[in-house]
Nucleic acid binder design. Sequence first.
DNA 1: GAATATAGTTTATGTTACAAACAAGTCTAT
DNA 2: ATAGACTTGTTTGTAACATAAACTATATTC
Lengths: 97, 97
Amino acid sequence: MAFTPLDPLLHNQLRLAIVSLLVSVEEGDFNFLLEKTGSTRGNLSVQITKLKEAGYISVNKGYKDNYPNTACAITYQGIRAFEAYVAAIKGYLNTGA
Amino acid sequence: MAFTPLDPLLHNQLRLAIVSLLVSVEEGDFNFLLEKTGSTRGNLSVQITKLKEAGYISVNKGYKDNYPNTACAITYQGIRAFEAYVAAIKGYLNTGA
DNA sequence: GAATATAGTTTATGTTACAAACAAGTCTAT
DNA sequence: ATAGACTTGTTTGTAACATAAACTATATTC
């Protein structure tokens, strides 16, 4: 039971929340993530960009009811990374022998 | 299933590993933690200090075989914090509905 | 057409994580 | 007894990070 390194990209509260949401939902726009995470828009914007640059999510910028709309979806790579993170961190949470 | 804030002190790979180890062992010295975590001494020293200042662990500096020996043990407060962290992060790891 | 609202980005700043350099003492061999 | 290597930690310097405030751009309302 070693301490597997934790993906630094996912080991962040907001980014982990984003990915966790997108894994369940498979499609979520900026406001959805904003509301669900309780983040600020600035922080959300930054972290979405980072996840996108890492290839963990895809970002589709379009319009909805005349307003800009940023739709995010998790990628296969993102799912894999999330699953690996979940498996890894469990090694840290074991209290029992 | 909201996203409970994660204790920033525990949401760090090395500190989480330290606390996780001490929860199981109830007594671990510097070298024990060094070996188990695979950390560097510098980083370990810093994080032990932070955990101590937060009251999550107690640090007992003595000597063992003539050499300095830093014995660490988890406090009640540390156990509580760890348990809260474990409960909190599980809210981020749930993939299923 | 001015004011306000929406949707998001850029920037500025303080904080953090980390390892290299340092410090203080101990052992060994000569 | 002292030089050199080892042990056990601490301090410090730097780069990366997290975050919110300030900003941009367009849309709606009055």
